[in-house]
Design a protein around this nucleic acid. Structure first.
Lengths: 148, 148
DNA sequence: GGCAATTAAGTTGTGCACAATCTAATTATA
DNA sequence: TATAATTAGATTGTGCACAACTTAATTGCC
């Protein structure tokens, strides 16, 4: 197994920089929507499933309350989302789209198209890359479960 | 091209979570060395090339001085590195390993082995995945250069 | 040689990311 | 049915990551 202690031979380094550079690509695309990359991910979830509770949202994004609480606060200041306490269980907080938040979806529709264009990648390659990343995560989780 | 506005279909999301989860895996492995993941990357570079200047270091890691300055300050507090101003160009600062920093390399040797074991991945797949990630970065840079 | 433009680091401010801790609501159980 | 354990969310503190700005050294150009 590749064990040489060299930066470029570490898969972690390649993942880390690829992720950072892709995020950098999003920045100017998301700027007109007044969203950071993480905020965009939250909006993606809400456009898919409105009135989701913070717990589930955190699980889908692998983010804990220490990250989500202030992030959601900023989305509220932008008037894109609102919090409603669940009636059946007063601990839960449901996150909902405001009319502005719902309307933003239309502008966001073109984000993936722009990114694909920038990556200049064909469908088959795109799918292969997605599968690789999903496989890496599966291996990480498999280990996590062995350990738990 | 995949343009559906769904979280799981975005390559950016898969990259982002894969990177985060892999970094999470490193945390307990690096804890005994008193290093965060980013600090570990800096040490990797130094073990490869001692007396590197901050500018070059930043280029290799895609990090700017705003990130590196405080990070290096913490590595100095740990007595792993020291800064020396270059004599030929007083603007440049060379980063060097202290004896402790050099000694740490031995403990770090086993880090990639542990990670490989956790990922439970064979050499061929590992190499294929590395190449995909490098290709993604190449596409991102190709776009960057078209735009510049 | 003198001065504008450039360059390397550092600083400040904002926003993640996460561990650890706290509070309040709910569930389990003695 | 009290009370202990668990759960959801918020808060605090540390450390990235990066944009924008500052300072000091160097280079370019006249």
């Amino acid at each position: 197994m590749k064990s040489s202690l060299t930066l470029e031979h570490q898969i972690c380094f390649q993942l880390y920089t690829a992720s950072k550079e892709l995020t950098r690509l999003y920045r100017p695309i998301l700027a007109p929507l007044n969203l950071t990359y993480s905020q965009y991910l939250v909006m993606l979830v809400l456009w898919e499933e409105d009135h989701i509770d913070l717990k589930q949202l955190g699980e889908r994004l692998t983010l804990d309350s220490g990250t989500l609480s202030p992030l959601v606060k900023r989305l509220m200041q932008l008037d894109y989302v609102e919090k409603v306490r669940a009636t059946d269980d007063e601990r839960r907080v449901l996150l909902s789209l405001t009319p502005s938040g719902r309307a933003l979806r239309e502008q966001a529709e073109e984000v993936p198209l722009k990114v694909s264009g920038m990556l200049n990648i064909d469908e088959a390659t795109y799918v292969a890359y997605m599968e690789m990343l999903i496989d890496i995560k599966a291996r990480l989780r498999a280990f996590g479960e062995r350990e738990e």
